[in-house]
Simulated assay, not measured.
Amino acid sequence: MKRQFSLAHLTVLGCAPPEMTYIAAMAGYDYVSIRPIYMGLPGEPNYDLVVNKEMMKQTKRALADTGVKLHDIELARIYEDVDPKRYLPAMEVAAELGGKAVLSSIWTPDRNFYIEKFGELCDLAKQFDLTVDLEYVPIASVNTLARAADVLRSVNRENAGIMIDTHHFQRARDHVEDLKALPREWFHFAHLCDAPGEIPTEKDEMTRILREARSYVGEGGIDIASIINSMPEMVYSIELPNLENVKVLGYAEHARRCIQSAKVYLDANPRR
């Protein structure tokens, strides 16, 4: 089966969905993973396609022109006092554009609350035939494989999934044996990137690498092959923000090198 790749939002942060789609097509990606849910982070561009009707129209045209498809939207965060219904308009956009999944993460320590709200999010997404895939993040509240698995077992929704990011997996000091033990139906897509093998002890440095200094696949210290080969074959969304590389190469060449390095690495580390 031909491997399929998606270009993730953070890899080309400064590109709106239409430009991102054309870059993805030129570089050889099958999908894009966009962020139409505005999070209000410092310096974050607003790509809310519900509000920006012209950008929505341009995105539809770019998808039609290139044949690239939408894979997933982000980021439906579960945080203190969130009402998951606020993500309904973005889910409608995802469905209209042919998307498959909603990426989520959990940023509140209140387990009873986040289990309830993640379940609600899954129920809302189901009407659009979207999965909700939980990404555990080293700086978030749900920050390990075990905690993410606990959420999926607790909500027990058919459209709930777990999304493994190779950077986060290594930073959480998780083990591939635990990954192999999880239900295969939980896996819909994964995030590929590399990073220095040494795990930062300071949260600021962890955050800096996570947001702006990840490495091309095979150029860091993460045993990506062991992680990827412990899961089913699926779409690989390349989330590889690197501000220095973008400054030197530009977004289009950075995106091309992201997929090229991933293909070379995966070819050199086949499944056994």
Rank of each mutant, 00 (worst) to 15 (best):
I222Q: 04
M163A: 11
E205Q: 15
A101G: 08
H188V: 13
G14T: 00
P183H: 08
Y47P: 00
D81H: 11
P109E: 10
A8W: 07
N159M: 03
I238Q: 09
E212N: 09
C122A: 06
I238S: 07
F169K: 10
P138T: 03
Q4S: 11
T131Q: 06
T166V: 10
A64D: 11
A149F: 01
P36D: 01
Y251C: 01
L7F: 03
G99M: 01
V12C: 10
F118K: 03
M56Q: 10
L10M: 15
S6Q: 01
V51C: 09
E239P: 01
Y38I: 10
L63H: 04
L124S: 03
M1K: 13
K126S: 14
G221Q: 06
E202W: 10
S226V: 02
N269R: 00
V248K: 14
Y114G: 05
G98I: 00
K53E: 11
S105F: 08
Y22L: 11
D72Q: 14
L88R: 06
Y265F: 14
R173A: 11
E177T: 14
H167I: 13
D174W: 05
V51I: 12
V51Y: 03
L97H: 06
L182P: 06
A213G: 10
S33R: 00
P196V: 04
E177W: 05
D133C: 14
L192P: 04
D81R: 12
R35E: 08
L49Q: 04
Y29I: 06
R86T: 15
T21C: 04
E92L: 03
P42H: 11
M206N: 12
S215F: 12
M1C: 08
T144Y: 09
A101K: 09
S6I: 03
M55R: 04
S33Q: 12
L103A: 14
Q58M: 03
